[in-house]
């Protein structure tokens, strides 16, 4: 990926490859410890989406779209939404318990991370398309 002319300079790409995994792990950490410390499913999901956006900004959109396509991200978002719906409806009949909170946190984080990444990808692609259309 380093020889790809699109994206930013070599220094930014090298630093990005070192830090993206750490940011993703920090997102997981915010999600999983939200019952004892500040955090939550939504904030963790946004951090995960930001790590992917970081990849797009550093390497250019084409290099990332080869690995993670838009359709896959939409599928992931829908899976998260369906999982959260099932958990929430199943908790109509059960009592308050800890496992339900943890599972719904993870489902929300999946949905938010994938969904906001899809929004960013869509806007970037749309800006590129419309710029091409204006030149013609």
């Amino acid at each position: 990926m380093t020889n790809n002319p699109s994206g930013m300079s070599l220094i930014v790409k090298t630093i990005t490859r070192l830090t993206v995994g750490l940011i993703l792990i920090y997102g997981f950490y915010i999600v999983l410890q939200s019952h004892i410390a500040p955090g939550g499913g939504f904030a963790g999901g946004v951090v995960m989406a930001l790590s992917l956006i970081h990849l797009v900004l550093a390497f250019g959109r084409d290099a990332v779209l080869k690995k993670i396509s838009q359709i896959n991200s939409v599928c992931l978002m829908s899976c998260g939404a369906i999982a959260f719906l099932v958990i929430a409806l199943s908790r109509l009949v059960t009592k308050n318990h800890f496992t339900g909170v943890l599972l719904s946190d993870i489902a929300i984080a999946t949905m938010v991370g994938a969904g906001l990444f899809v929004v960013f990808l869509t806007l970037v692609l749309f800006i590129k398309e419309s710029a091409k259309g204006n030149k013609q």
Binding site: L123, F126, S130
Partner: peptide, 10 residues
């Protein structure tokens, strides 16, 4: 709203 604004700009 931002996506709507981009559509209007296009």
């Amino acid at each position: 709203v931002v996506s709507l604004a981009l559509r209007v700009y296009e």
